[in-house]
């Protein structure tokens, strides 16, 4: 396949994943605002949503306060925000147009319909009353496209590049969310085990759609180490760092099989994956959670760049 087409499916999948994750972040921020803590703490939450989404600097350049509707409209649809969900959906759809000949009609139509629905919904300011509906539509677009990929695509290089895009983005996302909130998992705070902690931990799990899964696995008990282990090392949870790397590994193996050779990206991934597997949660805390996450984010970016170079995404 063309390098440009590989680039297209990769970014189509990344942007859809990013849009979905951003919707979840907003959902959590909104949820916190509703549970009625003080105005200051609400603003702190919206602030941390912006930080996790990587938009805080751009936002603060224009705005000085952090009211909910202003923040979520900025993230969702603001024309001054090149990283808005609306532009992510547009980028995803533009990339899908570029690679129309590589994807099935079902995948194209799911992407295109999502774009049609969302650009209509986001053509007007979003209010608190219809925020839920908008966020659901964003998540549904991601779900429908993934379902169409899963159900209709040949398991070939195109599929591999799409999955690689999804899991690079997801690994990066989970790591970022964790990194913004890592302090709530640190021992010094955790010994207290107050209601506030419980709420913070719950928020963190919700941000990666892991609150229910975590409850199932731990019979409802909350423990910061266990939460960190779950989000980083759990092989069953589809948004954990280990899970994302395992998917990267299998899809990269698919490429190596199809092309009959490995590339430098395989090597970097293997090294990083092995290290991740050898760690347990104690070692991560000993090393420093923040440092660990920073390293992980850097390494994931490096893998992404190596894939783009090795498979000739651009000239």
């Amino acid at each position: 396949m063309l390098g440009r087409a590989a680039n297209g499916v990769y970014w189509m999948s990344r942007y859809l994943e990013r849009a979905e994750n951003t919707a979840r972040l907003i959902d959590v921020g909104f949820h916190l605002a509703l549970t009625g803590s003080s105005k200051d703490s609400q603003h702190d939450e919206w602030r941390s949503v912006l930080t996790t989404a990587g938009l805080i600097d751009d936002y603060e350049a224009i705005h000085s306060d952090f009211s909910g509707p202003q923040v979520f409209n900025y993230i969702l649809r603001d024309k001054d925000n090149p990283g808005s969900v609306l532009s992510m959906i547009e980028y995803a759809r533009t990339n899908a147009r570029v690679v129309r000949t590589s994807i099935t009609n079902s995948v194209w139509e799911a992407t295109n319909e999502g774009w049609m629905t969302l650009s209509e919904m986001l053509s007007r300011p979003v209010r608190e009353t219809n925020l839920g509906e908008v966020l659901t539509a964003i998540r549904r677009t991601g779900t429908l496209v993934r379902g169409a990929l899963e159900g209709t695509m040949l398991r070939n290089e195109v599929f591999n590049f799409s999955r690689i895009g999804t899991f690079i983005e997801r690994a990066d996302n989970t790591a970022r969310i964790l990194d913004v909130k890592y302090y709530v998992l640190l021992p010094s705070n955790a010994w207290v085990g107050s209601n506030l902690d419980n709420q913070q931990w719950d928020t963190l799990l919700r941000s990666v759609a892991g609150n229910r899964a975590f409850s199932w696995l731990n019979a409802g008990a909350m423990d910061p180490r266990e939460i960190a282990r779950f989000l980083i090392l759990d092989g069953q949870f589809p948004r954990s760092l280990v899970f994302c790397y395992e998917k990267l590994r299998s899809n990269m193996a698919g490429l190596a099989k199809e092309y009959g050779c490995e590339t430098s990206a395989h090597e970097i991934l293997r090294e990083a994956g092995t290290r991740l597997h050898q760690l347990d949660v104690e070692q991560i805390f000993d090393q420093g959670l923040h440092e660990f996450l920073q390293d992980f984010i850097t390494k994931t970016n490096e893998i992404g760049r190596a894939i783009a170079a090795d498979y000739r995404f651009t000239e």
Binding site: M1, L2, G3, E157, Y259, Y311, R312, E315
Partner: peptide, 8 residues
């Protein structure tokens, strides 16, 4: 005239 594919 050659096209840039993922493998060359």
């Amino acid at each position: 005239v050659a096209m840039r594919t993922t493998t060359g």
